[in-house]
């Protein structure tokens, strides 16, 4: 990949939460690149740190979380900024948030203030980032409502968040996110709280908007079906680390990491026979403190190599031009640093 095409490039990102019980390494070495206009899926199960990565890019981490290492290069209009190195409340960061990079949350109810109408909040956002007066902003907000498929825009713009259904609220959230025509949209589990039919609608909408506005998107989800439908590239995370990443087809049909393989085998497929037993990954996800030594996946791994996987930590290295994996089945442990 040519450096010029990279819109976002995250290198060895570490996000730590110092607590009374010790440091929780929510994200402990994650790297990925994203080209303009493409969709990257970040998948993983609970505790893998996928949402924290999303918040880390915008540096809106909950206390006491902080970026403990790594770089987040944001590359637009010839400017290259390291988002990890600028203070979270600086004017540069504030200007990027919302205008260049926007975020859509899982639960849109808590993302809107209950005491202001949804429309006003969007208008406010537009006026903050765009050079528009109130009238223009309102017109643009109505257009956005139409764009995201909220019927009766002129009346709904006066409604409050609680007057919207789950699906409409998520549409409004998306309208707010795209209001400043961001170059990157980070969608954190945007459809998890929704029903399948609504989920399909929202995914359609996101794809449609992405094409129209040439937006890049990071889709954070645990649902492999959603990833397969929407993403160009996929990064799989396990316990704060990148396990594997590559083009969507290689992840689903030529996966390298035993965790990815196990994950794919353990989801019931609409094509598998009724009553057939699923292959499952043994054990369960360990708690945030007390993570396994060496490769964090080794206690659950079917291809575990004794004295290698439990002693050494695999690095997240490229396998070829497009794939990257962190596993001793693919990298020689002798080359690893302790």
């Amino acid at each position: 990949m040519n450096d010029k095409e990279k819109l976002l490039s995250v290198e060895d990102l570490k996000i730590h939460f110092p607590t009374d019980e010790g440091i929780v390494k929510a994200v402990d070495g994650v790297s990925f690149d994203l080209e303009a206009g493409k969709t990257l899926g970040i998948v993983g199960e609970s505790g893998c740190g996928k949402s924290t990565v999303g918040k880390g890019i915008l540096n809106i981490l909950e206390r006491p979380g902080k970026i403990a290492g790594g770089n987040i290069f944001w590359n637009t209009d010839g400017n290259n900024v390291d988002l990890a190195s600028i203070p979270p409340d600086s004017s540069t960061m504030r200007a990027i948030r919302g205008r260049e990079i926007a975020l859509v949350f899982q639960e849109p109810m808590t993302s809107f203030s209950p005491v202001h109408s949804v429309g006003n909040q969007i208008i406010e956002m537009i006026m903050l980032h765009k050079d528009m007066n109130k009238k223009e902003a309102k017109e643009w907000a109505m257009e956005l409502f139409n764009m995201v498929g909220i019927p009766n825009a002129s009346t709904r713009i006066k409604d409050y968040a609680h007057q919207f259904s789950g699906g409409l609220r998520q549409r409004a959230m998306i309208a707010m996110a795209i209001s400043c025509e961001p170059k990157l949209l980070i969608a954190d589990e945007p459809t998890t709280a929704l029903d399948v039919t609504t989920q399909a609608q929202i995914l359609d909408l996101l794809q449609e908007l992405q094409e129209k506005h040439k937006m890049a998107m990071i889709l954070i989800t645990h649902n492999l079906g959603v990833v397969a439908e929407v993403c160009d590239d996929v990064a799989v995370m396990y316990l704060g680390r990148g396990a594997e990443q590559g083009p969507v087809d290689s992840i689903f049909h030529d996966s390298k990491h035993p965790y990815t393989k196990g994950l794919l085998e353990s989801i019931p497929s609409i094509n598998s026979a009724q009553g057939e037993r699923l292959k499952s990954i043994v054990g369960s996800i360990p708690p945030p403190f007390n993570r396994p030594k060496g490769c964090t996946f080794h206690p659950r791994c079917p291809s575990f190599i004794k004295d290698v996987c439990d002693k050494h930590t695999p690095q997240y290295l490229p396998l070829n031009d497009v794939q990257r994996v962190s596993c001793f089945l693919h990298h020689d442990p002798k080359k690893e640093v302790e």
Binding site: T197, Q199, A200, V227, A228, D249, F252, L264, S269
Partner: peptide, 26 residues
């Protein structure tokens, strides 16, 4: 029919080309 077709298939090679998704709300 709509419910079945809305389920995302975890295989990028089976991406639906034509989308038959329900409109409106429950």
């Amino acid at each position: 029919e709509a419910l079945l077709n809305a389920v995302p298939v975890p295989d990028p090679r089976q991406r639906k080309t034509e989308k038959k998704h329900l409109s409106g709300e429950v």
